[in-house]
Design a protein around this nucleic acid. Sequence first.
RNA 1: GCUGACGUAGCUCAGUCGGUAGAGCACAUCCUUGGUAAGGAUGAGGUCACCGGUUCAAUCCCGGUCGUCAGCUCCA
Length: 660
Amino acid sequence: MEKIKITFPDKSVKEFDKGVTVFDVASSISSRLASDALVGKLNGKYIDMNSKIEEDGELAILTFRDEEGKMTYWHSSSHLMAHAIQTLYPEAKFGVGPPIENGFYYDFDIDTKLTEDDLIKIENKMLEIAKEKNIFSRSELSKDEAIKLFEEKGDQYKLEILSELDDNEETISIYNEGEFTDLCTGPHVPDVSKIKYVKLLSVSGSYWRGDEKNKQLQRIYGITFPKKKMLDEHLEALEEAKRRDHRKLGKELELFHITPEVGAGLPLWLPNGTILRETLENFLKEEQVKRGYQPVITPHIGNINLYKTSGHYPYYKESQFPTMTFEDSDEEYLLKPMNCPHHFKIFDSKTRSYRDLPIRYAEFGTVYRYEQSGELNGLTRVRCFSVDDSHMFVAQDQLKDEICDVIDLIQTVFSAVGFEDFTTELSFRDDDNEKYGGEIELWEQAQKDLKEAADQMNLEYTIQEGEAAFYGPKIDFIVKDALGRKWQLGTVQVDYVMPERFDLLYVGSDGERHRPVVIHRAPFGSLERFIGVLIEHFAGNFPTWLAPVQAAVIPISQNYFDYAEEVNAKLKENNIRVELDKRNEKVGFKIRDWETKKVPYMLIVGEKEQNTKTVSLRQHKIGDLGSLDLNDFIYNIVDEINSKANNNEERFSSLKKNTA
RNA sequence: GCUGACGUAGCUCAGUCGGUAGAGCACAUCCUUGGUAAGGAUGAGGUCACCGGUUCAAUCCCGGUCGUCAGCUCCA
């Protein structure tokens, strides 16, 4: 028997008979691995467990613990779900059903509109089929054979996919599992019984191939696990996400309020939310002053010609509030959907010299965009929001340094609030999209500048072709919300187009007129979205410098109101946001109440504290820390606030030992 | 915008298989002056999202509108 050499990820090499299956190899290592193994990776290619290995190679045997193993598992799960749907709804036509970051989905076309209740039925059917232990078997066939097969099944969507495949280049394969056959490149887990625990999460509409001109199919999202504990943990994580949801916390902590009586997507900032927002604004303003920005203020509306000049109108007409017109005048105004034109006009208000550059105008500019109703989402997608906008007018040779400074500013902002888990995308143009204006050379220059700046600042990024703004490429900073949805926050955009359209010029050292380059940038992006994500990031437990109420003074009874007033006044003198709780309630009640309001510190004062000029300190989520000198507390909390500390767990903890 | 689900007190929710509604929390008043996560009593609070239709009668059934949620699409 001919032998082959297999190299494992730990670089060990073992010999096997030629034609050995991945499963055999796994069995030779351990029976545990043989039973956990889901898929093999031979020389970088994923293969089924029962695939025969015919030549030497590097083999990894993957289980659910591996990311790729998980993907295979969920991919197979989507087939199992499709199988269950086919059994329950024989008329079903199937679209696509891939694994995703957390689970899988399958798109299908059936006449009945499914509801959440139907999901249970499908779940049960899946578990029933899983028990049959059908194996996933692969067969390869010619395009004609495949077309014939799916014509017989009447699967028009599969036929559409097939018609676009080139069978000279790609092997066409199908996978069969029990009664269910699907066009699929694989690989799959050995048999359906590997899928043990199933939770179907939601059903919704989804356009075939993501094109709204196409028919809307139904999509079911689900997730599966080999162990019950994993499913329980996943469901618990979903519950936690619900608890962190900024829409829920925004209500509970009285940060903002959205009511249809004002308008969908038009948030009202309540006092607590306003403190949070203004604290962030002031922080950024200080940073911007250090970096040579000049504050400006512009109106909320503008003459429509501004947007005709910029090119935003009429291409984005659908996402604008309607224009304002007057009976006795031809003038038309628009609620401003962006701040750029106003800032351009400030630049253009007098002759600029190269000596003035870079010019950096900054404004927390409120803009209005008529987002589609189905897109509105708490604070993260609204119709009125404030951008921490700046437009910077620079000479070409200043561009890269300016971009670097902006990236540095965004990093400063993100690290101040403890955003560590973000991704960065460079969005470039693609050649065949007609939305992109301006000359190709300028675009290439801009993309080169951005990329060089990103590299110089050691950003780790991915490049997104065709995602650029119509006027230029950009760098976006993206974070995920509690539910795992991605939101773009900070952005830096290079723009050679608008200076042209607005005919912006400065006088160079040569006495000639030159075109500045514009950088659009916003570290927060929109205050609304940023704060929405921030609420979820901290789960409402804001660091002291951001907390709307930083400390609550709780007198034990009326007898200690005088001292409580004294403590309250002293904290106020030190600019600490403090509330004195004189309600006619017991201490336990008040503690519970302030705890649910997530206030960082509670200062409990009674006879003992009054006599010794101390406070009994209780820290949010940590509990009673014993008493300390009022002045010591003030010194520490002021230091904590001024340093914008994101973590105060250790700050007062030494006290606890003293009193224990 | 599309598909589906949902909309009952400030909040979280129950309820009515068609006969105009209820709890807990929050709020107000009173009693209680209490030492580290809910003291007690009383009270006020709702055109059951809105507009039509069916019906003797609609919060409940039907249609539309608005809004919310999930996903799709979109996102200057």
